[in-house]
Structures are given as structure tokens and as C-alpha cells.
Design a protein around this nucleic acid. Sequence first.
DNA 1: CTGAAAGCGCTTACAG
DNA 2: CTGAAAGCGCTTACAG
Lengths: 341, 341
Amino acid sequence: MMEKSRKTTLSEVAVAANVSPITVSRALRSPEKVSAEARERITRAIADLGYVPDPAARALASGRTDVVGVLIPSVSNNVFSDVLHGIYDGIADSTLSVQLGTTGYSPLAEERLIRVFLSQRPSGLIVAGHEQSPAARRLLAEANCPVVQIMEIGPQPIDLAVGLSHFDGARAATAHLLDRGYRAPAFLGAQMDPRSQRRLAGFREGIRLAGRDGPDRVVTTPEPSSVSLGCRLLADLLARHPEADAVLCNNDDLALGVLFEAMRRNLPVPDRLGICGFNDLEMMAAAQPPLSSIATDRHGMGRMAVHLIRQRHGGTGPARGHALDLGFALRARESTAGRRG
Amino acid sequence: MMEKSRKTTLSEVAVAANVSPITVSRALRSPEKVSAEARERITRAIADLGYVPDPAARALASGRTDVVGVLIPSVSNNVFSDVLHGIYDGIADSTLSVQLGTTGYSPLAEERLIRVFLSQRPSGLIVAGHEQSPAARRLLAEANCPVVQIMEIGPQPIDLAVGLSHFDGARAATAHLLDRGYRAPAFLGAQMDPRSQRRLAGFREGIRLAGRDGPDRVVTTPEPSSVSLGCRLLADLLARHPEADAVLCNNDDLALGVLFEAMRRNLPVPDRLGICGFNDLEMMAAAQPPLSSIATDRHGMGRMAVHLIRQRHGGTGPARGHALDLGFALRARESTAGRRG
DNA sequence: CTGAAAGCGCTTACAG
DNA sequence: CTGAAAGCGCTTACAG
């Protein structure tokens, strides 16, 4: 029947529907501007011929594409995959598609990818964090599309931002540990990216506000985070600060590792050791004992980022410079129920 | 200095380098065909003007793009995010980029996305699984680019396949449980996608081969998998089959939930209950007790899929119909050390 | 090693 | 509501 693989073009649809190519193009983009009869013939022709518009031709002619560029450090990190999921949900009912780039936490790779993405004239750009190189910031500031920085709300969004204050989250968690009677809370961190640094600062501020001026019980490593690293970090901590009686973990994987290591060492949780994570992954509530954490809305962040871009295209939504704070929530569970005795 | 945002074109580079546009184009694609002097002037002009080629124009003129389309059910699933990570590593040293689509386990959504992706004339397509709709299979079979099916090795690859036998993996795990003296192994499954069905079949085969003809101890649910679901499934299992003394879990999240639920119920692991997962996520080895699992090379699957596509473009690599078995490995840990007494 | 001509498949203004 | 003309920024053959 059909020619093997020569793809159908808009002109062929036009011939079949007995209209001009421009009318087909119009029927595709603004159907209401085309008469009902023409529209119907065109719709049928498209179906009959199996026509799919060529995005490259469209992009070249119109000067824009329907792609949203997304730049994150890594996909194999629950946090970012949740965000990504939210982004996909956000575009689901649209013609937008996602162009994903991973920077591996390298500002240089990020800058290069921004250049590549911008060359495609995207509908919008979503980038993780606020630590772009100066050149990258300039590119983004001059970009011809909405730019949304996600993960945290910074002091000075390049265009728009949606996230939360990691500093405040960690401070709240620290206050919670102190509230519950833990006397020597520590901080455990891996892969100390900017958000982690902010959490560490929030932890220290929490300690300071409580008027504690003991040692700075902090163990961090640049290694990528993992559950087994949580085990090791607890071991390190107890070697250096045997008096530590609670840990605020940079993320939930570490917290899970800490729990397992505490079990191995017969350190009762929460009686002898309090544990609090960050992000509140699903597993936290299911653990035994259930693990406390700071809940963040990663899926909502992704959705909202897309929403802001779509609003901007619709001429509505917040103006340049707006930072949307999605907040956080302390989920206090048994793992921080307090010391006994 | 620079015009606000009018982008630099190849022709402008040509003028600056005092050559014709075709030569610039050639310098970009096959530098060895351009004289060293011309090449140098062009390189400098590109840097000076900050020129970035327009992928849309390139695609339209050449009839192909450098994008690899990737179709997976979901990004917020460790298994697929690991694969994705492998894919990104696979393209890292190339000019390829990834176009990611998520199907949400819907064959219809998958078919629609295949159509969209194909309309961009991709360099290759990577699709998860072998359950495409007949129409989708036809589209893929006639696609003008390499197509790699990942996750499992099926009987009849559309073009190429790379994965493992989930049936064999589950059967090996089941044999292991029986070997270790467990007398009444059960299977726990969630989100019973095709791979999960294969694992269940492998479990049943393992039981059959051992000559056990007791009850079919299987609890499954179509709900998405999670750690807390693992807790509930164990509760269900014990309500129906109190004699069950080991569980093969469809995946590691369930296994972790089972461990926590066993702890809550004071069921000693592995003495009273053996636990084995599937995939061997990083946390399994760190758990207390360490959890057994079937290790799969998800990252390698992604890398290999890209590798096959690149080989095909280089004119080498396996022929159409080839299925690459990456195998699996049983990681026997303490959680399946055997019953006591 | 280099270039002039034609064209990829659409959309943008501009008319009517 | 519909269409003829021009062009988006490249690359593909074809010459030389």
C-alpha cells in the first residue's frame, strides 16, 4: 500500500484535502481559524496518510520548538527522578516534550549544555540549583524563553525559581532533635552539593540558636551518597564523637544506613540514638522504627516548574524575579521519639 | 558588543573565516576534508562569534538527527533511572542527545510516542520490553534506524535486544531458597508488569522442578511497588499461608518492606523467614541483616543499548535479530542463610 | 581541497 | 476564511 518509508508531508495532506498547505498548517495550529468543512477534510487526510508534522521543519520555520530543556545533576538519584516525574506529569496534557541533560554536578558541563539547549530555541528551561557559572547565568539571563531554577529558592532568581529553603529545613530538624531531649546531635553528609551545604549551615544555626557550644559534630564526605555510606559515616561519627546521641542526615539513604548500622551495633533507636533524614522518601514511614524526615515536594517542584513555563507562554503567571517557596514539613516519627532516661 | 540575541549563523561564520558556507559545514562534520589553514580560521571564527549549529536546520537538511529516543514506563523507578544513567554515560563522548518519553505502562501511550519520536528521524530508538502493540511493532520494524529493546531478552527481537531472563533469575532465586532448607517459599509481587509476570513464572517453575506440590504461595497486587507495600504483602501472605518460611520478592523495595515488617512481628530473619529481592539495589548489602537478591546490570543495559546503536552507525555490531543476554547473579547474603532447626 | 545551486518541510507575514 | 511568496539555516549531491 504505502510507499515504504518516504514520510508524508504537509503538502501531500493539502492535496488530499483539496486545500493549500497553509490551510493545513493553520488547521494544525489554530483549528478555529479554519472552516469546519475544510477542517474535516484535513483531519481525514491526516489520518488516511498517517501524517505526522516534522518538528525540525516546524522549528526552523517558526523559530521555536515545543521542547522544555531540563538540566539536572544526575538521573540516578531519587530526588531528581521524582522531580523529573513531576515534569513529565506537567507536560502530559500538552504538546511539549522534554530534552534532558545531566551535568554530573559539573558547572562546565552545565554551561556547555545550556549553550546546546539554547541553540534549539526551547519553550523553556528548567535548571537545578543556583550555582551556575557566571557565563551560564548570562546565557540564561539573556535566554529568549522562561527559565525556572528548581530545588531551592535562592536570593536572586535569574528568572523564576521554585523550591524550598534547605537551610530552614535542616534548622527545623535540628530544633526537633533538641526538643526531643537529644543532647549531642550530629550532622552526617555525603556528596556535599550546594543544597547539602545549606543543610549543614542550617544544622549549625539550629545548634547555635539553642545556645549549645560543644564540639561541631559533623562528618561529611564528597563521595556520592548511598545506604552503605550511611553505615560508614555513623561508624566514623561514633569513633570521633562517642557522645553523639542523634544524627541529622543529609538525605534519607544515609539515614537508612545509619539505622542498619545502629542495629548492628545494638544501639537502640530512638532511645540511645535519634535519626532524622531529609526528603522523606516513601520508605521512611515503612521502616522499623519509622524514620523521621523533612518532607519535600519534589514531584510538585517539577510540575510547578512546567506550570510556570506554560503560564508565561499564556501571558500570565508571576513576573521575572519571582521565587516560589514550596516549603517543607517535619515528619516526626518514632526514630526521634527522644532519649530514654 | 554582540547583537542582543539574533543568533549567529553558519554563513556569518563563513564570512568571518573568508570561506564559503559549505566549507564551514564540512569543517564541522569532517574536519579532515578541510585544509589546516581554513580549519583554523573557521575554528577561530566560531569561537569569536559564539556560533552553535542549529539542530533543526541540520535535521531538515540532512534528514536525520543526533537524537536517541528512549521509551520507558516511568522515571521514578530505580530500575529505569539506572538504565537511563547508563544511557547518558553511553552518549557522553558523542554528539548524541537523548529524547526521553515515559509511557506509564500504557501500550497506547507507547505507540503514540513511537510515532512522535520516529517523526524526528532519530539516530536510534531504545524501548523497554517486548510488549509493544502490533501497530507499534510494525512502526519499529520499519523504522529507519536501529531499535534496541531493553530490560529482557525476548524470543523475537524487533531489531536488537539487550537484557536478561527474568524467568531464569527468579528460578535461580527459588532454587537457592529451597537449597537453603526453606520448605515453604512464597512469591510477593507488585505492579505486575511483563517482567514481573516472568519472574513469577520462574518462581513457579523453581517450585515445580523441586517436586513440591503444596499450595501456590503467591500474593500479588497491581499497585505500584513500594517499601510499605512490602510490609502489607507480607501481612497478607502470613494471613493466608502462615506456614510460609521464605519470600522471593518481585523487587528490592518489597524485600526491604518485608524485612521491616518481619522485625515488627519479631520474625527472625533468616531463621524463621528467608528474604530474597530482585535487582540488587545498593541498599541490599547494607541492610541488617544483609539482604539477598538477584543482581542485574541495569546501568550496563543502558550503556550497551547505546553502544549497539553506535556500532550499527559505524557499520559494525550484531545483525538484526540479535539478543544480548547480560545475565544475572545471585547474591546470597545473610537474609537467606537458612532456617534454624 | 573548495564552492554554486537546489532543496529539506514547514511557518510567517501579507493580501484578499 | 483562504492562499502565493519568501525564507528559516543548514546539507546533499555535483562540479571543478
